[in-house]
């Protein structure tokens, strides 16, 4: 599962791209409430990292997390149903865009608190390995997370206890609207060095480059190495969040956006296929997403009487809020 496979990589980036575009349409159509943080432009990172992982390996994602969940193997139809708040969704309509999870394929959840998931994933990988599983983990976070103390504590704990976690920084240049230069003293890779962790900077727009770097890190980790950091340089093609489609925020010069969009991971991966093969993938992805949209919108909305279901795993029943 870790060798080069241009067709598969292309399929994944194309799937994420079209999934996000379909999801944005559903936001504008009012079928997805609350909006989403589109992963457009960053697809090569999730696709490349997850192509170097096994099904049993664990990942955690971010608020901009659809790509991570899909790349790790979650069903796009159930993912889309989740975004639409249906009981047929991955999280039975309880999580939505920012908390989508699929434990069955090793996705311990997108996580909406910046920098929070690294320590969670470290603990999960540690426990699985304590039980004898030879797994590794990958935790995705943005450039905004590298100033969160919680994440830096997780770097320390993982490095100290040699837990094989790949810390994947998706540096898209902005934490919401704050540019990296306005927020990060020192460097992102330098933070890894402070904990004795190897760090690699990679072109996040090239899925194969990301896959190669990840495969090498994963091989070192499976051989007993400690955690590593990958800083994938990327660019967010669309808004921080779809609310920006209504309220334009002025923080990225148009020339910069055009330059960023000129290096498209879908095109970079697609150029490695012959045109017929690429067209066949595109058609297959489209058919899959047509079916996914149909599945998502056909799913029942949850019964309000079940709003407290799953609040407690122990079976504890919470008092309701009525008089």
């Amino acid at each position: 599962m870790t060798g080069a496979d241009p067709l598969r990589l292309y399929r994944t980036v194309r799937l994420i791209r079209r999934f996000e575009e379909r999801a944005i349409e559903l936001v504008h159509a009012g079928q997805i409430v609350g909006g989403i943080h589109p992963y457009l432009g960053q697809e090569g990172i999730a696709a490349g990292v997850c192509a170097a992982l096994d099904r049993e390996d664990l990942v955690t994602g971010t608020h901009r997390g659809h790509g991570h969940v899909l790349a790790k193997g979650a069903d796009p139809a159930r993912m889309l149903a989740e975004l639409c708040g249906r009981v047929t969704g991955l999280n039975r309509g309880r999580g939505g865009s920012m908390h989508a999870a699929d434990f069955g394929v090793g996705v311990l959840g997108a996580n909406a608190i910046v920098g929070a998931a690294g320590a969670i994933l470290t603990g999960a990988v540690w426990e699985r390995r304590r039980r004898g599983a030879g797994i590794v983990g990958a935790t995705f976070f943005g450039d905004g997370a590298v100033n969160e103390g919680m994440l830096l504590e997780a770097f320390n704990l993982a490095a100290l206890w040699r837990v094989p976690v790949l810390f994947v920084c998706e540096n898209n240049g902005y934490a919401t609207t704050m540019p990296v230069d306005g927020a990060v003293a020192g460097t992102i890779a330098g933070r890894a060095a402070a904990f004795g962790m190897p760090a690699t900077v990679v072109d996040g727009q090239d899925p194969e480059a990301v896959r190669e770097v990840t495969a090498a890190a994963v091989a070192r980790m499976r051989a007993g190495g400690g955690p590593e950091l990958v800083e994938a340089r990327t660019y967010r093609f669309d808004a921080h969040h779809t609310f920006e489609h209504q309220v334009r925020l002025d923080y990225r010069p148009p020339e910069e956006v055009a330059e960023g969009r000129s290096r498209d991971p879908v095109d970079i991966a697609g150029a490695r296929l012959d045109p017929a093969a690429r067209a066949a993938v595109d058609a297959a992805v489209e058919a899959e997403l047509d079916a996914a949209v149909e599945y998502a919108l056909a799913g029942p909305h949850p019964d309000p009487a079940t709003a407290l279901d799953h609040l407690y795993a122990s079976g504890l029943t919470a008092r309701t809020g009525g008089g």
Binding site: L58, A116, A119, I120, G123, W126, E127, M150, A154, L157
Partner: peptide, 10 residues
């Protein structure tokens, strides 16, 4: 949070 993750893993 490490404990949370360990709990998620059993």
């Amino acid at each position: 949070s490490f404990a949370t993750g360990a709990a998620l893993a059993g």
